[in-house]
Amino acid sequence: MGPMVWISALICIFGLLVKFILIIKEVYEKERYLLSYITVRHSLRSIIAWLIPFYPRSTRMRPVYYGISYLFHVLLFLLPVFLMSHIVLINESFNLSWPAMNDTAADILTIGVIFALVFFVLRRRFIPDVRFLTSFMDYILILMVLLPFVTGFLAYHQVILYKWIVIAHVLSGEVLLIVIPFSRFSHMITAPLTRAYTGSEFGNIRHARDW
């Protein structure tokens, strides 16, 4: 594997880490009082409540979107990690290995991810309140996630232009990794933080549930 994979992976991990540290640092400097309200117990209570599928009322009111979104997020991480082709490459580099997902299953789930993203686009186009909130950037973000999956799917099936598709797959994956810390994709670390704070305010101060 070329160096760009490692560079982009490191940018992603360290970018998120730095972002996290900067947030905590700024809270310390400007809003330290927030720390007197946040508790581990209430943070976890809220985060866990929101990780249980269809437990929060909000998610029950939009079961289709929430269900698709939930599976999408799970697959977004599981698919690349447990894909055999990726494990083989990791194994060549680090001699590390873990069980791989069945190829056919991975293939079907990839189609699932692609459909989820198409669903997100359609939702952005046709649900009026979501459309109102949507900007061009939201489509770019969807495209950035879509590309590695579509190219990965095409590469696996060796449909056309195999070499170029693989290159596009690698590049789009790397771009996605690099972009994560600098875009709203960083909600992967900020969302648990905002959830934790709101969960603490609700649980610790207001003695109420926030789901």
Binding site: L22, L34, Y65, D138, A191, L193
Partner: peptide, 25 residues
């Protein structure tokens, strides 16, 4: 404001799940 405000702005994925919460909406 501080990091909290920035996190609120950066974290919103414009999903629209909040719509159903609002009696005005």
């Amino acid at each position: 404001t501080g990091a909290r405000f920035k996190a609120y702005v950066d974290t919103c994925m414009r999903c629209g799940l909040c719509s159903d919460a609002c009696s005005y909406f």
